[in-house]
Simulated scan of single mutants.
Amino acid sequence: MTNYRRDLTPGACWFFTLALANRKSSLLIEHIEALRTAFRKVQRRHPWRVDAIVILPNHLHALCTLPAGDADYALRWRQIKGQFSRTIPQGEPVSLSRHLKNERGIWQRRYWEHRIRDANDLARHLDYIHFNPCKHGLVTRAADWPWSSFHHYVRLGLLPADWAGGTAAPARHP
């Protein structure tokens, strides 16, 4: 088995991408309440701050900050994925290796993580998260995608409601 080297800086802010195994699926938005419940349950046991998030039909992006001294984001994602998967009726195709490990075939096994390095890196990843539904052609305005922290940023006055109002990539917010 490949041994991935992961950055485990305690208390850091991270950008994550998690995807479903079936990239044509829309399970994440079809079962958005189950996903929210999974996040809440794990959050109670293993707190962390979700700074920004967007849920798309077949993947999600999130910016999360771990508590000081804690670097175990893998535990949180494993539990979120497991909680969510247990609520979905079985029936998805499962590879032999997953079958032998008694695993579901809902999520891709791996995920992408990137430790945020500085304020510019944070701003770029916030923009990426909030613009992602537009990038994928799901909406033409960021404000039209309901499953995004974009709306929270607007309520806080950190982004204007018309940010990313067209199809071009938006200018960075302050």
Rank of each mutant, 00 (worst) to 15 (best):
T2S: 13
N3W: 05
R5L: 10
R5D: 05
R5A: 10
R6T: 08
R6G: 02
D7A: 14
P10S: 08
A12D: 04
C13D: 07
W14T: 05
T17I: 15
A19N: 10
A19I: 02
A21P: 00
N22R: 11
S25L: 05
S25N: 10
I29A: 08
I29E: 11
H31S: 14
I32N: 01
I32Y: 08
A34Y: 02
A34M: 06
L35Q: 04
L35A: 11
T37N: 13
F39C: 12
R40V: 07
R40A: 12
R40K: 13
R40L: 08
V42N: 09
Q43L: 10
Q43G: 08
R44H: 03
H46Y: 14
W48K: 12
R49V: 09
V50P: 00
V50A: 07
D51N: 11
V54A: 05
I55K: 06
L60N: 06
H61Q: 09
L63M: 15
C64A: 15
T65V: 02
T65F: 01
L66M: 15
L66E: 04
L66I: 04
P67T: 03
A68N: 07
G69C: 06
D70L: 09
D72S: 14
Y73G: 10
A74Q: 07
R76S: 08
W77C: 05
R78F: 04
Q79T: 01
Q79V: 00
Q79G: 00
I80P: 08
I80V: 15
I80Q: 08
G82N: 11
G82R: 13
G82Q: 12
Q83A: 12
F84K: 10
F84Q: 06
T87V: 07
P89H: 01
P89Q: 09
Q90V: 09
Q90T: 12
G91A: 06
E92G: 09
E92Y: 04
E92D: 02
P93S: 10
V94M: 11
L96S: 11
L96T: 13
L96E: 13
L96H: 05
H99Y: 02
N102Q: 14
E103Q: 15
W107L: 12
W107K: 13
Q108R: 15
Q108T: 14
R109H: 13
R110I: 01
H114L: 13
H114Y: 09
H114C: 13
R115W: 03
R115M: 14
I116N: 09
I116F: 04
D118Q: 07
A119K: 10
A119M: 06
N120H: 09
R124I: 02
R124Q: 14
L126C: 09
I129M: 05
H130Q: 04
N132L: 04
N132V: 02
N132C: 03
C134W: 00
H136V: 02
H136A: 07
V139T: 14
T140H: 07
R141M: 05
A142G: 02
W147V: 04
H151F: 03
H151T: 02
H152R: 15
H152T: 10
H152F: 02
Y153H: 15
V154C: 11
L156V: 01
P160A: 08
W163L: 04
W163D: 03
W163R: 07
A164S: 08
G165K: 05
G166I: 00
G166R: 05
G166C: 00
A168D: 09
A169R: 14
R172T: 00
P174Y: 02
